[in-house]
Design a protein around this nucleic acid. Structure first.
Length: 456
RNA sequence: GUGCUUGUAGCUCAGCAGGUUAGAGCAUCAGAUUGUGGUUCUGAGGGUCGUGGGUUCGAGUCCCAUCAGGCACCCCA
């Protein structure tokens, strides 16, 4: 980097018109599907009180929250001891009251509690906004990125799980992304932990077995022992890890293993019901029961959902699950919710890599009017007005420069048509409409031009 | 927080064992073509080789430090 050159923080990005156009295509698709299913939009502030966020994402999560330094003489309020000890973590909680939101789910929980008396439950809401994480950026990982959440809160029905999976299926079908939906249930995982005698170690067990396809069975077993499991427990876990067959076969076998676990059986029941709803309205994509799927923040209590793009090396592009008591921490217990979140930026990367964006999303103006000078421009001004009245996106080249330059402008900006209005055209009223893709040029009166542009 | 890796033009890179005024392609701008773009041809602008120090007669090249990117782990969208 040379000295004076400006830059932006690591892990953040500028979005140029092309990128915005493509990103909007993703947002619009998701939004349309959400709306089709009765979800309603909300937005929450970029910053929350730090106390709202802290402790909701685990120890690691707390570390990754971007804190906002208080304004004014913030050091005077800090505890002198903390300051002297140079205890950054503790100090930051004394001099930072606000933080950038880390996801959309916790702010949503806060929103629900705060607005509980205005809300008619169950509430179906969606939210498309950026979130920030002080993570180390790498492929498919940014410090500022967009999440597209949909949640149903205040309903225990597993129909919601089905509907969200169906939404995932529809969105990716529309976008042309080939995916696999992986589902699991936290209760089944709890049952497994109980079955092997380490109910209290469920987090350790799940984070270890989550890595199965990444590091292999042996390494997972090693890690399980490191995390405090006995050899016998690891041994007992093996048949569960290696389950195969259809979704229903897997569940049948699990039912035998987990026969003594009430939670486990409940999880199996839940899973069966979701699969049942799905059987009545099959998805286009594959929906797979994956017992090694343990992801999901620690507040998930039921279903866990994760979406992987097929044939692309990319982390999950959509995730979700059910949380029975998310609002409990904010003083509203017993409110169950289930939600999903599309990672727009990762979806963007996948689609770009696979060339899935339609060409026409890059078209802003439908037609460019050539500028030949003052007189012609006056005529063109009226044409512009008429086109716009007919909702045709158009623009006039603002300067009287040579035609080549104006044509290049149209070409570079993906403007599919150029309208040439010179002396001849003004006299005859027949304007020259050029199709930039085919190079074909037609001499047409304005009403015909409007008709022509309207179809395309 | 841990490990690995890379810094040369706006972008992608070349620069051969340290040796004259640091190169290419793409992009940009201009001209060939003053009413027709995407192809072609010609030309131009643009670099204190990330920064600081060291070794040397001489450093883009070697050494050290530092800063900044990238990738992987952890965790996650």
């Amino acid at each position: 980097m040379s000295k004076g050159k400006p830059s932006i923080p690591k892990g953040t990005r500028d979005f140029s018109p092309q990128e915005i156009a493509r990103r909007n295509y993703i947002f619009d698709t998701i939004r349309a599907v959400y709306e089709l299913h009765g979800y309603r939009p909300i937005e929450t502030p970029a910053m929350e009180n730090l106390s709202t966020l802290m402790g909701k994402y685990g120890e690691e999560g707390d570390r990754l929250i971007f804190r906002i330094l208080n304004s004014g003489d913030y050091l005077s309020k800090a505890n002198p001891d903390t300051l002297a000890r140079k205890d950054s973590l503790q100090l930051s909680s004394q001099i930072c009251e606000k933080a950038l939101r880390y996801d959309l789910t916790v702010p949503f929980a806060r929103y629900v509690v705060q607005h509980q008396h205005e809300i008619t439950f169950p509430l179906k809401r969606f939210q498309i906004q950026p979130v920030w994480r002080a993570d180390r950026p790498q492929k498919g990982r940014y410090r500022e990125f967009f999440q597209c959440d949909a949640d149903v809160i205040g309903s225990d029905s597993l129909f919601n799980e089905y509907e969200l999976i169906s939404i995932i299926d529809q969105v990716f079908q529309k976008l042309g992304v080939s995916i696999t939906v992986k589902i699991n249930n936290r209760k089944i995982l709890a049952g497994i932990a109980e079955y092997i005698g380490f109910a209290d170690k469920i987090i350790d067990i799940t984070t270890a077995i989550d890595k199965l396809d990444k590091i292999g069975l042996d390494k997972v077993n090693e890690e399980l022992k490191e995390r405090g499991l006995t050899g016998a427990a690891v041994e007992a876990l093996q048949p569960v890890l290696l389950l195969e067959g259809t979704e229903n076969e897997k569940l049948e076998r699990l039912r035998v293993v987990l026969t003594t676990s009430t939670v486990g059986l409940k999880g199996i029941e839940e899973m069966e019901e979701v699969l049942d709803w799905l059987a009545n309205d099959p998805t286009n994509c594959r929906v797979e029961l994956d017992l090694t799927l343990a992801r999901g923040l620690n507040y998930y209590t039921g279903a866990i959902i994760e979406v992987k793009a097929n044939d692309v090396a990319m982390g999950s592009i959509c995730g979700g699950g059910r949380y029975d008591d998310l609002t409990g921490i904010f003083g509203l217990p017993g409110m169950s919710g289930v939600g999903i979140s599309f990672g727009a930026d990762r979806i963007y990367d996948v689609m770009l890599e696979q060339g899935l964006f339609p060409e026409d999303v890059l078209t802003f103006s439908q037609v460019l009017l050539v500028n030949f000078g003052k007189e012609e421009q006056k005529y063109a001004q009226q044409v512009l007005k008429e086109l716009r009245k007919n909702h045709i996106k158009c623009e006039l080249y603002p300067d009287d420069v040579k035609m080549k330059k104006q044509m290049q402008y149209a070409d570079k900006n993906n403007i599919p048509y150029v309208l040439v209005i010179g002396r001849n055209e003004m006299e005859s009223g027949m304007l020259s409409l050029k199709n930039m893709k085919t190079g074909e040029q037609k001499s047409l009166a304005l009403p015909e031009i409007i008709k022509e542009l309207f179809v395309h």
